[in-house]
């Protein structure tokens, strides 16, 4: 019997408030699965990769968890139930988080973007999630809430391993907080997959760099890099960032950075690609991003 029918006895609790949701998670003794957009969970259950427990907490009716706001401190606050279609409709995200906005347009097709949520993309913790590298490059924190209160965790330390996170069973993801793209900085997003829509990434990469002119030299003030599908979970590329930080951007530095990136990741062979291909492509993406930065800066454009 297919999974969604085998789940005939599963009960669904669909509260309208966050309080009721975290209360349920605090009180219930049995395992609970959380349902947001359903695009991952339904496939998992239908294909028999996982069984539904007796209770599912459907958070999709909690309206307060679907918002995109600019905070007083300049950070951007996104509710976990914001769908990829919502991301595409947000002028704020288009301007201040362009890599995320671009990634959202390449997730699934319109039917998937209408259902799939950014919070679900994070909590599902797939190493190939397209939404995560842009968030890593935007220095994102996530807020986890239980009946005891909230805690804030940098996204780079949120993933523990393949499809696992530090979130506790009684916690819900309630907010995604990212930094806006700085004035003069430049964002990049690239996904390599067999086709443009409805495809799982072989490699997915996002970055932000800030290049400033110092006389004839292009100085890379900051670099923030996130990558997916090349390790058990999405990674912030700290070693590569460290190598690049506050350096004069030259072709030689770029090649050093490409080498560092290739040793910082841990890709595998699987049905979608090979480790060698992923390592090669990941490096090429970084090179393309940095070379564009160098060219733009040499062409005399202020910042970029």
């Amino acid at each position: 019997m297919r999974g969604t029918r085998a789940a005939a006895r599963t009960e669904v609790f669909s509260p309208h408030s966050l309080e009721a949701a975290v209360q349920l998670l605090a009180e219930v003794k049995e395992p609970v699965r959380i349902l947001a957009g359903g695009t991952d969970l339904m496939v998992e259950v239908e294909t028999g990769r996982s069984e539904l427990p007796g209770l599912v907490l459907d958070i999709s009716r909690i309206r307060d968890l679907r918002f995109v706001d600019e905070g007083d401190e300049g950070a951007i606050h996104i509710g976990p139930l914001v769908t990829f279609a919502d991301v595409r409709r947000s002028a704020l995200l288009r301007e201040k988080a362009p890599a995320l906005w671009q990634a959202a347009g390449l997730v699934g097709g319109e039917q998937i973007r209408n259902a799939a949520t950014l919070g679900g993309n994070i909590m599902n913790a797939s190493p190939a999630a397209d939404g995560i590298p842009p968030l890593l490059a935007a220095e994102t924190h996530v807020v986890l809430t239980s009946s005891e209160g909230s805690r804030r965790i940098p996204l780079f330390s949120f993933f523990k391993g393949y499809r696992t996170t530090v979130a506790k069973p009684e916690e819900l993801l309630t907010e995604i907080v990212l930094q806006p793209l700085a004035e003069g900085a430049h964002a990049y997003f690239r996904k390599v997959a067999p086709r443009r829509a409805q495809a799982i990434s072989k490699v997915v990469f996002a970055g932000r760099i800030h290049v400033a002119r110092d006389g004839a030299a292009a100085v890379l003030k900051t670099a923030r890099l996130g990558i997916g599908a090349v390790a058990p979970h999405a990674l912030r590329l700290f070693e590569t960032e460290r190598l690049l930080g506050a350096q004069v951007l030259t072709p030689r530095l770029i090649e050093d950075a490409v080498r560092t990136l290739r040793s910082e990741i841990a890709p595998i062979d699987d049905v979608r690609s090979t480790a060698d291909y992923r390592r090669a492509v990941a490096g090429n993406m970084l090179r393309a991003f940095l070379m564009a930065g160098l060219t733009r800066s040499e062409s005399g454009k202020a910042g970029f």
């Binding site: 669904v12 239908e46 209408n114």
Partner: peptide, 9 residues
Amino acid sequence: EPLCACLVP
């Protein structure tokens, strides 16, 4: 909104 009916409980 268009959705895939196979993914909607």
